[in-house]
Design a protein around this nucleic acid. Structure first.
Lengths: 139, 139
DNA sequence: ATAATATGGATGCATAATATCCATAATTTA
DNA sequence: TAAATTATGGATATTATGCATCCATATTAT
């Protein structure tokens, strides 16, 4: 139960971009400012591009830009972009039946945790993080 | 971000014990009933013993017993027994300073998620899971 | 004495997370 | 047109860790 470094990298990169009002921020700049291995960052950025969170431009003066304003991007999207579907426990897969129980007694617990987790992610925007005003979100 | 199989094993074992009104349930029985590799289960049980959640007895007719009633054991304790301190992200360690920011913009988010996670764990008892009445807990 | 059980430590295995490298395509600028 | 800069995509390596296995030992009931 922990946040992967990969997700941390993605969030840091996007936060960095969101805090700058200019387009075409190069991987190099993000990498150096956020201490992220550039080759690894490349892989992460591709996923963000694929998911439509950022737009890329090749060539000199190329780089990445946010496709939407920071208040239109929430953490859930970022999570799913880099990690895929949110699923706390294997048996929560859609069509997987738990081998042990008809009605697993602990599934509702993990489900509740997951719902609450997703709720927080969905309600938190990149703008919140850029501005650092997380407290505004109701706990 | 997911629940480890180890924690799942621990919860299943304790739930199994909580559902039976007898003492000295052997590893063998738990292992066979819950499909948990017995050698691995051994390691998990030791941690539960060390944390005082269960009591063990060696020798024939030996085994494990809950030290408290199921309604006195909550999920947070179980989690911590097998996983150690709850910490969603590395930089949440007590005396670790994030190398990037004075005030990290995303830390409050992860912190909020973690607080909500811990709350659910603390409010869920083994009894809830044994009886399957998770719904009673306020969402 | 024997059998059944937990304990503790050492070790191995498999998979995933993280990181690195390289060849290529696109685009700007000189 | 040439050169430089940047992202892309795929292959591969490295590391960490979750998971599992094995074995020798101690304890206790019968």
């Amino acid at each position: 139960m922990n946040i992967s470094r990969t997700l941390d990298y993605a969030v840091r990169s996007l936060t960095y971009m969101g805090a700058k009002p200019i387009d075409n921020i190069s991987m190099k700049e993000i990498s150096e400012n956020q201490y992220i291995p550039i080759n690894y960052l490349a892989k992460i950025m591709r996923r963000l591009v694929k998911r439509g969170l950022v737009r890329s431009m090749v060539g000199p003066s190329g780089g990445y830009s946010l496709r939407r304003t920071p208040n239109e991007i929430n953490l859930k999207e970022i999570y799913e972009a880099v990690e895929g579907e949110i699923r706390l426990i294997e048996c929560m897969e859609d069509d997987k039946i738990c081998r042990l129980y008809e009605g697993c007694p602990q599934l509702p617990v993990w489900d509740k945790v997951q719902v609450s987790f997703v709720k927080i992610l969905r309600e938190t925007t990149l703008e919140d993080m850029v501005k650092g005003n997380i407290n505004k979100i109701d706990a």
